[in-house]
Computed example of a mutant assay.
Amino acid sequence: MTSFISKIKIDKPVEQVYLFLEDCNNHEKLQPENIYNWTSTRDEAHFTIQNMAKLSLVVKERIANQSIEFVPSGNAPFDLFLKWMLSRDTDGSSNVILELSADLNMMMKMMASGPLQKLVDYQTAKLAEVL
Rank of each mutant, 00 (worst) to 15 (best):
P32L: 02
D91W: 00
A53V: 05
T39D: 14
E15R: 06
N105E: 09
G74R: 02
A112Q: 10
S56L: 09
Q31Y: 07
D43E: 11
D121I: 00
L131Q: 05
K118H: 13
A102D: 06
Q31K: 11
V17D: 00
Q117H: 01
W38G: 09
L86C: 03
S40Q: 08
W38V: 14
M106N: 12
I63C: 10
E61W: 07
L119Q: 11
E99D: 03
P13V: 08
H46G: 11
A53M: 01
E22W: 01
N34T: 07
Q31D: 13
R42P: 11
L104G: 09
R88M: 01
Y36K: 14
S3W: 11
I10F: 00
N51T: 15
M1S: 10
L86R: 05
Q123K: 06
L86S: 04
N26V: 07
K126H: 02
A45D: 13
L98Q: 11
T41R: 08
L82N: 12
D121T: 02
R88A: 04
N95M: 13
Q117Y: 01
W38D: 10
N37F: 05
L21Q: 07
W38F: 08
D43K: 05
E22D: 07
E99Y: 01
A45F: 02
S87Y: 06
P77E: 05
M110Q: 14
N51R: 14
I49L: 08
W84S: 03
N65I: 00
L57H: 15
N26R: 05
R62H: 00
V71W: 03
K54I: 13
K29S: 10
I49T: 12
N105F: 04
R42L: 13
D11C: 06
P72H: 00
I10P: 03
A53L: 01
A112E: 11
P13G: 08
T41W: 04
L119C: 06
M85H: 15
M106H: 15
M1V: 12
S6G: 12
K7I: 11
K118S: 13
L82Q: 12
Q50T: 11
Q123S: 09
I49D: 07
L19I: 10
Q66C: 05
Q123N: 07
S101R: 10
M52P: 11
Q117L: 04
L80V: 00
K54Q: 11
M106V: 12
K60P: 02
K9N: 15
A125Y: 03
Q123V: 06
I97D: 06
K83R: 09
L98F: 04
L131A: 02
N105W: 01
K12D: 09
S73L: 05
T48K: 10
E61V: 09
H46Y: 07
D23V: 03
D79Y: 05
R62D: 01
L100Y: 05
V14L: 05
S93N: 01
M111H: 10
L100T: 06
T2V: 14
R62K: 05
A128V: 09
I97C: 05
D79Q: 07
K29A: 12
E129T: 11
M52G: 09
R42N: 15
I63P: 04
V96D: 02
W84A: 02
A45L: 10
